[in-house]
Amino acid sequence: MPVGATSNESAEAAPLEPRHPWSRYVALGDSFTEGIGDPEPTVPGGHRGWADRVAEVLAQGDDDFAYANLAIRGRLIQQIIDEQIEPALALRPDLITISAGGNDVIRPGTDPDEISARFEYAVERLSRDRATIVLFTGVDVGFSPVFRGIRGKVAIYNENLRAIAAKHDLLVADQWALTEIQDQRMWAPDRLHLNPLGHHTVARMVLATLNVDNDLEPSTPEPLPARSWREARVGDLAWAREYLVPWVVRRIRHQSSGDFVTAKRPDAGPYAVPGGTERG
């Protein structure tokens, strides 16, 4: 200890312990990771989402932290493998999140075992540089009248993902157990994507999975509004007209909502707080 310095002064001068071990985070996936349902015009791509929210927390106090988001809406798992894995590895991340296969699972006639085999192939390639990898289970869709019929299929896929995670020592962000989002008020009007509160809730779960302290509060950024039975039924009809019918037409035409869309954050760089400055 320098002459004249007190123990308190020495403690104050000591460098702060890092809040987490990661410096380069890359997110892969489809519309869920792109942030659809959480519009924010001040960020790249015009959507914020859970991954941006996680990156904002991880960037706090770290000038060198970098973040890239390669996810594109509508992508099937093979497209994610073909289009996103090599660009992700080129960025040399030490933290990777991947949510893939959801668009495959909801398609009639698809096999969750075959989808899982593709997912494991993706994980094997992403494991090349020993980054921490986080995968996501699917949401328990039993609450949804639209998707309740594929609940068993989602459960099979989830069990396969858990086996992959155990085999390859991955972290599991468990949406199936996240009961807060089993509520239509957490979802955007299209009922396919989370709304801002839903994305916020998933971000809190991901940070808990990473064991990263944060100040994200439950039921923020907005409270859950109550809805009457009549309002819910009127909403069903409006939803079917505006979202379900166009979705079915796209399936028939073999089109995707992600056609001609590019990644919103293709390069790893500092995270910019919406409406503010770079967070570091």
Rank of each mutant, 00 (worst) to 15 (best):
residue 62 D to W: 03
residue 66 A to V: 15
residue 66 A to H: 15
residue 67 Y to F: 14
residue 67 Y to V: 08
residue 68 A to S: 02
residue 69 N to A: 11
residue 69 N to W: 00
residue 69 N to E: 05
residue 71 A to T: 07
residue 75 R to G: 06
residue 77 I to D: 10
residue 79 Q to A: 07
residue 81 I to F: 03
residue 84 Q to P: 03
residue 84 Q to W: 01
residue 85 I to K: 08
residue 85 I to Q: 03
residue 86 E to Y: 01
residue 90 A to N: 04
residue 91 L to A: 06
residue 91 L to M: 07
residue 91 L to R: 11
residue 93 P to R: 10
residue 94 D to Q: 10
residue 94 D to N: 09
residue 95 L to F: 00
residue 96 I to K: 08
residue 98 I to N: 01
residue 99 S to F: 06
residue 100 A to M: 05
residue 105 V to F: 13
residue 106 I to F: 10
residue 106 I to H: 10
residue 107 R to E: 10
residue 108 P to H: 01
residue 109 G to T: 03
residue 111 D to L: 05
residue 113 D to G: 11
residue 113 D to F: 14
residue 114 E to D: 13
residue 114 E to Y: 01
residue 115 I to D: 13
residue 119 F to P: 03
residue 119 F to R: 03
residue 120 E to W: 13
residue 127 S to L: 07
residue 127 S to E: 12
residue 129 D to T: 00
residue 130 R to N: 10
residue 132 T to C: 11
residue 132 T to N: 04
residue 139 V to F: 06
residue 139 V to N: 08
residue 140 D to Y: 10
residue 141 V to C: 14
residue 144 S to K: 01
residue 146 V to E: 15
residue 147 F to L: 15
residue 149 G to L: 12
residue 151 R to Y: 12
residue 152 G to C: 11
residue 153 K to Q: 14
residue 153 K to H: 08
residue 154 V to R: 04
residue 154 V to D: 04
residue 157 Y to V: 06
residue 158 N to Q: 11
residue 158 N to C: 13
residue 159 E to N: 10
residue 159 E to K: 05
residue 162 R to C: 00
residue 166 A to P: 02
residue 167 K to M: 10
residue 168 H to A: 07
residue 169 D to P: 08
residue 171 L to A: 14
residue 172 V to S: 10
residue 172 V to L: 13
residue 173 A to G: 03
residue 177 A to L: 04
residue 178 L to H: 13
residue 178 L to V: 11
residue 179 T to K: 06
residue 180 E to S: 15
residue 181 I to N: 10
residue 183 D to M: 14
residue 183 D to C: 01
residue 184 Q to M: 13
residue 184 Q to E: 15
residue 184 Q to S: 12
residue 184 Q to P: 02
residue 185 R to D: 08
residue 186 M to P: 05
residue 187 W to I: 00
residue 187 W to S: 03
residue 188 A to R: 02
